[in-house]
Design a protein around this nucleic acid. Structure first.
Lengths: 237, 237
DNA sequence: ACCTGAACACCGTTCAAGT
DNA sequence: ACCTGAACACCGTTCAAGT
């Protein structure tokens, strides 16, 4: 039976955190720690409060809702993402795009929290979050236009690759849940596949991952798209 | 004050649904109705039970968990998806791929429930779910190999486009939440963008959607990739 | 076999305080 | 101003029944 707060006696004064000892940054940091352990989906307000040894409701003084906290996490995730992404400024435009988007994929594959926050969470990016992206984008646009791309073609080039890579990352993330290892190979998928009715599909199942986003397939897709860009700029001359 | 179950008197005999009147199909159908109204995220077991006028726990006789129910919904979603997707068998391979993936995107854009279940939900597809996809895939592979693609190049061709289109759909779905209309145009994004520091980015913001997945951008990305495929098969001859 | 309510541990959020 | 527990409406799931 729980004792009432009005009960007499001074047993176990509930430890109360001192006045200025909580901050938005501290909550965000704790949330990243927790999300790293339990996943973004496993993040809850009570668990976060326990992790930080503060009252659950204290969080609500700094963030009006869980959604607003996740907005702050996403903004921070973008910063951490671009901090891990080299610039490749010394490379020619085609190699630079390849390395840029290779690294883009690698960072997201290595950090599910960044992936879930930036690529999978619904909702616009808040305010200035994308500002960390602008210098990268600008620098690549400059180089592409120097290489002969029109203003529109340069942005198009960036976006085709960006959408392709985001697709590859998301498909892999969604198709390979936590309990499975990374492979995403054919597994026993072929077992139920009717070999006689679908011989080419059967053959493809032996050679491919069936998702199109294993390393070699990703590389070939990247190659094909960049080659297309190379040809398109050559045509224009 | 709630009355105890042991209270005397036969007031309001709790209507109990008759013996064989529930089925897995009926639950799945009700779940689609509810998800259509409240979104996949808004689907809950109590709400579903209320919608079907049955007890919450009755659902658990047909599906061991909510996750298992969602697996069944996803399998059904794949069937409904391919039922809406024309085959385009009469077209030459390049036009067929374009129309196939245009329709692919259109169907997902028109039905958020299918999009959320098939493209965004984590976890492998269960058992034979992908069987509805095999004949489409097989038929396209046949045509591509007839057109001169190798076994691997044919599957690669399908997968690059597939990953690109899934990327485009997911990015749009994730960037444009329910309360916003469809546009995904520049909005006031440019307002905070420093025009002097990032002139090309500023220019791109005026011309592009900033996500790379608006209609015209998607079409140009599709064109570029298909042109790359056309060239790659021409090179091989 | 099929269907059910009560109960449990959890969640996000609000409120009315305490300091 | 900052921090808090109690309380509320909700959720997924289990259990011990009823028919």
């Amino acid at each position: 039976m729980p004792h009432r707060s009005s009960a007499a006696g001074a047993d176990a004064p509930p430890t109360r955190v001192s006045r200025g000892s909580i901050s938005a940054e501290m909550i965000v940091e704790g949330a990243f720690e927790l999300a790293g352990r339990d996943g973004v989906d496993g993040l809850s307000m009570p668990k976060l409060a326990r992790h930080l040894s503060i009252g659950v409701t204290s969080i609500y003084w700094y963030f009006k809702s869980k959604d607003e906290l996740l907005d702050a996490l996403t903004a921070e995730a973008l910063i951490r993402f671009y901090a891990q992404l080299p610039t490749f400024e010394e490379l020619p435009w085609d190699e630079r795009l390849r390395e840029h988007f290779r690294a883009f994929r690698r960072v997201f594959r290595e950090d599910d929290v960044l992936c879930d926050l930036i690529l999978l969470r619904s909702g616009h990016f808040e305010g200035n979050s994308l500002a960390v992206w602008w210098p990268r984008f600008e620098s690549i646009l400059v180089q592409l236009q120097d290489a002969g791309f029109s203003s529109r073609a340069a942005a198009d080039a960036y976006f085709v690759l960006s959408v392709y890579v985001r697709g590859a990352v998301v498909v892999e993330r969604v198709m390979t849940p936590a309990d499975h290892p990374r492979p995403s190979t054919t597994y026993q998928r072929t077992s139920r596949l009717d070999r006689d009715a679908y011989p080419l599909t059967y053959q493809a199942a032996l050679e491919h991952s069936f998702t199109g986003v294993a390393d070699e397939e990703f590389e070939r897709g990247l190659d094909l798209t960049i080659k297309g860009l190379r040809d398109s700029v050559a045509d224009q001359d």
